[in-house]
Design a protein around this nucleic acid. Structure first.
Length: 609
RNA sequence: GGACCGGUAGCUCAGUUGGAUAGAGCAGCUGCCUUCUAAGCAGCAGGUCAUUGGUUCGAAUCCAAUCCGGUUCACCA
């Protein structure tokens, strides 16, 4: 059992004994004592003063004495400063804890709880390669899934491939017009990039075709007496409408219609080009360790939800407007009216999502269904959950949108049009190249084979990127500074990995035996054990908050403290054999927690670097 | 205009149901390798916690208002 609840119970019990007052143990504030004070844990007394009708000093002293007397194996002393009761936990407690846990490979993980959770993440469009924003999504989603496993859940990782729609048709048209039959094989270009290139090509061609159309419209407007400002505004507002006049846009829209009609050559091309993209994605997924238990394809789900609209109309959750479109009124919930079926009878995005939510529930029956999607869709998911609840769908309450902020560059948002989008493969390559450079500079890898070296560069490079993207609170938008991301000092994966490698270098010389570890702890030894003790709690917190940055911060804290300890006390040249064994066990437990914590972030740690 | 999110050191970020003198990293400055890995350690310096008011033993944290930034409110996905 974790120590904080133990202390809370002890405090609660002593208060009951002393003052005959019943307090819920979890209501008692217990925190780690700040380093500038003596003691290990602090009970904050202020909140108790009123109910117990005591002065702070008085209560602190009475309670402190009772706690030490009543729990001799746990507490070794106390002091009271203002309203804070500082308790010293006896060394024997920590030594016992270390003895039991130092070599447990499952340490920190929680037992199975019988619950099942689905995590949907990544979910790319199939018309262009992955970029930095996807990476934040993927690292986050994958990590949250692992954190849920560590919290005792069974996890189903899913992905929805947005494989149909106007976006892919744009790539297809451009490919037909300009590619001369180019394929990934014939060009040597990775499939997702090749398809993406034609998506860009489409945009360029559209721009070309738009120039005369805009010019003509502009002349018309000015001639009809509009001011230049009015004209500019009109052109801006009606941009999309005007684009529909361009031949290449018309062709793309026709292609979408043909696709929905199942026109064989269109479907064939669609299949081929999506195939290239998937192959490209798979390569990227593989190098970053992303994986899915189940992939849904929008082309198979986009017609879902239509019966649910009928059902919603029957249940009066939805209503019809005069033109035949179906809506839901969410104004009472503080939102707006939202369309769920178009005038022409076709489903909209939200309708598909309602249908897919039902399919997911039927197929996997998860208690919780997490969607890792950017915060620009906050409104959408609020609506989705609300509609599912109103429809009375099973699992509606389990829908949770794990919303994360956009990744920006120091120069601002990434923009396709300005070519500032950071490509996932490019940035990974760069990180790995950089780690190779720095590793060679360090010159500590003598004796490793070519393959081991290549593996090492990858561990450091991809690990660095993952850590960088996952170390900040998901909710917040973050700034990606390329120079900072390849940094190897401070709050980085490399620092933590290096710390692990250090611990392993000790074990290459000598291993723990499981023998005697003595009866006393030096301050740094104790501090490290106290920090390691928090690991299970950290895993729980990260799960409750769906927040991997909790793990990242913790692992960094452990590494920092270990380095201080390592610098201050020699392990192999300890003062006595007992001390050596103690430190070897601390070394082992620290190494395990670092490795395990990093694994929850999808980051591997090397034995040497 | 409505809804939601954010504003903490020069920069990037932490800050547990409100608790002691608000913490890290980077950048800057000063020391420490004949030692288990210096990709490290120790130290110095750096703050109007956006602003104003309120709640109370106590507020970066809760409430209200204001300012600034972002997202969203499509018969797009």
């Amino acid at each position: 059992m974790a120590i904080v609840p133990v202390i809370q119970s002890a405090v609660s019990a002593q208060i009951n004994k002393l003052y005959q007052v019943d307090l819920d143990p979890s209501s008692i504030t217990v925190s780690e004592t700040k380093p500038e004070f003596e003691g290990d844990y602090t009970v904050v007394l202020f909140a108790l003063l009123k109910t117990l009708k005591k002065k702070p000093e008085e209560l602190g002293n009475e309670l402190g004495q009772a706690l030490v007397a009543g729990n001799a194996t746990l507490f070794s002393g106390f002091n009271v400063i203002k309203g804070f009761l500082n308790l010293a936990v006896s060394d024997s407690f920590w030594l016992q804890f270390l003895k039991e846990q130092y070599n447990d490979p499952q340490y920190g993980r929680h037992p199975r709880n019988g619950k099942r959770v689905m995590v949907e993440y990544a979910s790319p469009n199939t018309n262009k390669p992955l970029h930095l924003g996807h990476l934040r999504n993927i690292f986050l989603g994958w990590s949250v899934a692992e954190i849920y496993k560590a919290n005792g859940y069974e996890v189903v990782k899913t992905c929805i491939a947005n494989d149909r729609g106007i976006h892919i048709c744009k790539s297809m048209i451009a490919w037909q017009l300009f590619a001369n039959g180019a394929t990934p094989e014939s060009t040597g270009i990775k499939g997702d990039h090749l398809v993406g290139d034609y998506y860009v090509k489409f945009g360029e061609e559209l721009k070309k075709q738009m120039a005369p159309i805009i010019e003509k419209k502009q002349a018309e407007l000015l001639e009809s007496g509009k001011t230049p400002e009015e004209t500019a505004k009109y052109l801006h507002d009606k941009k999309e409408e005007l684009e529909k006049e361009a031949p290449i846009m018309k062709a793309a829209q026709q292609m979408l219609i043909d696709w929905e009609a199942g026109k064989p050559d269109v479907v064939e091309l669609w299949r081929t080009m999506n195939g290239w993209v998937y192959k490209g994605f798979d390569e990227t997924y593989k190098r970053i360790g992303a994986n899915f238990d189940k992939v849904y394809y929008e082309s198979e789900t986009y017609l879902l939800g239509k019966e649910l609209v009928e059902e919603g109309l029957r249940k009066k959750v939805f209503f019809l407007k005069d033109d035949g479109s179906a809506w839901v009124d969410l104004t009472k919930d503080g939102l707006d009216e939202k369309i769920v079926r178009r005038r022409d009878g076709t489903a909209v995005y939200i309708t598909q999502d309602i249908g897919l939510a039902e399919v997911k529930k039927n197929e996997f029956n998860c208690d919780l269904s997490i969607y890792v999607v950017g915060d620009e869709q906050n409104y959408h998911f609020k609506v989705l959950k609300l509609i599912c609840q109103k429809l009375g769908l099973e699992g509606a309450d389990g829908i949770f949108h794990l919303s994360y902020g956009m990744v920006e560059l120091p120069t601002g948002r990434m923009k396709t049009r300005e070519g500032t989008v950071v490509d996932a493969d490019d940035i990974l390559d760069e990180m790995i190249r950089e780690s190779e450079l720095k590793t060679k500079e360090q010159g500590k890898t003598e004796g490793l084979s070519e393959e081991e070296l290549k593996n090492l560069y990858e561990i450091i490079g991809t690990g660095g990127l993952k850590f960088f993207l996952v170390r900040v609170d998901p909710k917040k938008r973050m700034i990606f500074n390329p120079e900072e991301s390849i940094e190897l000092h401070g709050f980085t994966a490399t620092f933590v990995q290096y710390t692990y490698a250090r611990s392993q270098s000790v074990f290459r010389k000598e291993l723990y035996t499981g023998g005697e570890i003595g009866a006393e702890l030096l301050p740094l030894e104790k501090q490290l054990i106290i920090t390691l003790e928090r690991y299970a709690d950290i895993i729980k917190q990260a799960g409750d908050e769906m927040n991997p940055s909790v793990i990242a911060g913790y692992v960094f804290e452990v590494a920092k403290l270990y380095n201080t300890f390592y610098n201050e006390h020699s392990i192999l040249k300890a003062e006595s054999p007992v001390k050596k064994e103690l430190r070897l066990q601390i070394n082992q437990m620290t190494a395990h927690v670092i490795k395990s914590g990093m694994a929850l972030l999808g980051i591997r740690v090397p034995d040497r670097m």
